[in-house]
Simulated scan of single mutants.
Amino acid sequence: MTEKLNPGVARDIGRRVRALREAAGMSVTRLAQVSDVSRRMLTQVELGQANPSIGTVDKVAAALGTTFPGLLGVVDHAPPAGVQIWSTSDDSWAYLLRAVETPDLSVELWRLRLVGEEGHRVGPTAGAPDSMLHVLEGTVRVATGGDVASVAEGRSGTLAADVEHRITAITPVAAFLRVVMVPRSHR
C-alpha cells in the first residue's frame, strides 16, 4: 500500500508551503536545493496538483523550519477527531490525532486502521527515540528485517527508531495507536 496524503490534506499543505516559503523570501528553486525535493514536485505541491508522500512533506517541512504537524496546523490545535492523513479504498486509514512540539522534538499521536492485506511502513528515523504501538482492535504483525512479532488487542510494543518496520493486520481488521517522537533537527 502506498500511503499518499488525502487530496484535501495535500491541498492544505501546498497552500501552507507556499505561504511559509514566500514569508521566508525563498524561491522554489532555493527550497528545492535545501529540501532535496525537485522544483517540479514543489511547484505541483504548492498548486495542489501533487499527492506527495509523508516523507517528501517531512523534507519540505524541515527545510522551512517546521514539522509535518506544523504544516497541517495541528500542533496543540488538532480537531477532536484528528486529521485523516491517508485512506485506501479498502478502508484502511491513518489519523494524526494530536501533536505537540518542544524545541527538540515533535511528539505525534496517530491512530491507524489496517484492513485485509494492507500494511503500513515505518521508516527509520536517525536520532529518534523508539516509538510505541498499542493495539486497540485485532492483532498486528510487526516485521523488522528477518524478525517478526505479533501484538494482540490490548497489548503494546516498541518499534526501534533506527530500523524499518512493516506493520500488517493478522486479523481481518486491526486498529492501533502509535506515539512517535521525531527530533526537530531530522525534519
Rank of each mutant, 00 (worst) to 15 (best):
A126R: 10
D130A: 15
V83M: 02
V60R: 00
A78E: 08
T67K: 04
E101H: 06
F68K: 00
P52Y: 11
L133C: 08
L105F: 15
D104E: 12
S156Q: 08
G70N: 09
K59W: 07
V148S: 02
S131C: 11
R155D: 14
E118R: 10
R121M: 12
S92Y: 04
T102G: 06
E137Y: 11
L112A: 06
T158W: 03
T102S: 15
G65H: 09
D90N: 10
P52L: 13
V148E: 12
N51D: 13
S89V: 14
E101Y: 06
G70M: 08
T67D: 06
G123P: 12
S87V: 07
R111Q: 15
T144P: 00
N51A: 13
L112T: 10
G154K: 03
A81K: 05
G73R: 02
L133Y: 02
T102E: 05
E101K: 06
F68A: 12
D58C: 07
A152K: 11
R113M: 02
V107Q: 01
L97A: 00
G119T: 13
T66G: 08
E108T: 09
Q84D: 01
L136P: 10
V151F: 03
E118P: 00
G154C: 09
V100Y: 01
L64K: 04
T139S: 10
V135Q: 04
E153S: 12
R113C: 14
D104Q: 11
G116M: 08
W93V: 09
G154F: 10
E153A: 10
A81R: 09
G55R: 08
G127S: 07
V60Y: 02
P103C: 01
